[in-house]
Design a protein around this nucleic acid. Structure first.
Lengths: 144, 144
DNA sequence: ATTACATGTAATCGATATTGTTACAGGTAA
DNA sequence: TTACCTGTAACAATATCGATTACATGTAAT
């Protein structure tokens, strides 16, 4: 099991829009860098647009960031591309037997524990911005 | 996307072994409480056994805990049932374009961020023991 | 030794999610 | 009108999950 690479690709898209901000960042351009199909990129662009992270218009080539780099966290991207639903990082088996003391309580007992674990993971994502990602790549480029 | 319910079922199994420690906890008994097939339970029992969490023997009915309740964390169960591999909670797209500054760096930049998020989630699991789960259920039973 | 019953394990199936691909509708500007 | 872009639907290939069936193997009681 793994969380969909839509998340990583979403970050890639936003980062590249920033790096190419003087130029035109079309779905084809993005697809070439990500190494996938333009239609895949357009679908993701739709999600990022819906989440208010980018501006993109039918018939007009290129996407632009809709917010400041420092105002976009990885959590924003994570939510935008819809990879994990609220309280659903972990799945819990359905319909355990109600006549068993464990069966009738296990879901209620486990759920808050799973939610806490998921929340801790998401908190890390909230504390990283796209600015951090862009700066890290810029640093790596200057060194190499 | 969701982490397999094997994790939740694994917790269920261990918890029920404890609740039924005076009796014989067979795969059929467990399957009835979990509401699944005995073969599914046996496969999970094999994983829990391999991880040293339970003792179970071919031909002999019933499983027993191999460690103290307070010595088994949810993380132990999580690793035992093999739901998420190390550094693979998030997947990263392969083969981004090396001629692009973003494409050639994005993986190295994102990987530690994803690893940190995964680690934070796992840390929560490390801090909860089966004893906590059993006590919580026992409390709920006494109240209701 | 035979019988009854347990665990161990492999094969298979249906359901679902993911990723890539193709195709085309609709918008924009030269 | 033409060229090119985004938006979106349909479909295939692949992978994983959970359930199911079947059977080999091990144990203990008769």
């Amino acid at each position: 099991m793994s969380i969909s690479s839509r998340f990583a690709v979403g970050i890639h898209i936003l980062t590249l829009i920033e790096f190419n901000k003087e130029g035109v960042t079309s779905s084809e351009f993005l697809a070439s860098s990500v190494n996938t199909n333009p239609a895949v990129i357009r679908k993701l662009m739709g999600m990022l647009k819906k989440a208010g992270l980018i501006e993109v218009h039918p018939g007009i080539a290129g996407a632009k960031l809709a917010k400041e780099l420092s105002d976009i966290t990885l959590f924003d991207v994570y939510k935008a591309v819809n990879v994990v639903q609220e309280k659903e990082l972990f799945s819990i088996h359905e319909s355990p037997h109600p006549d068993c003391p464990v069966g009738r309580n296990i879901q209620n007992t486990i759920e808050p524990l799973f939610a806490a674990a998921q929340f801790a993971m998401e908190k890390v994502l909230r504390n990283v911005t796209l600015e951090d990602v862009v700066k890290d790549i810029a640093t790596k480029e200057n060194i190499c």
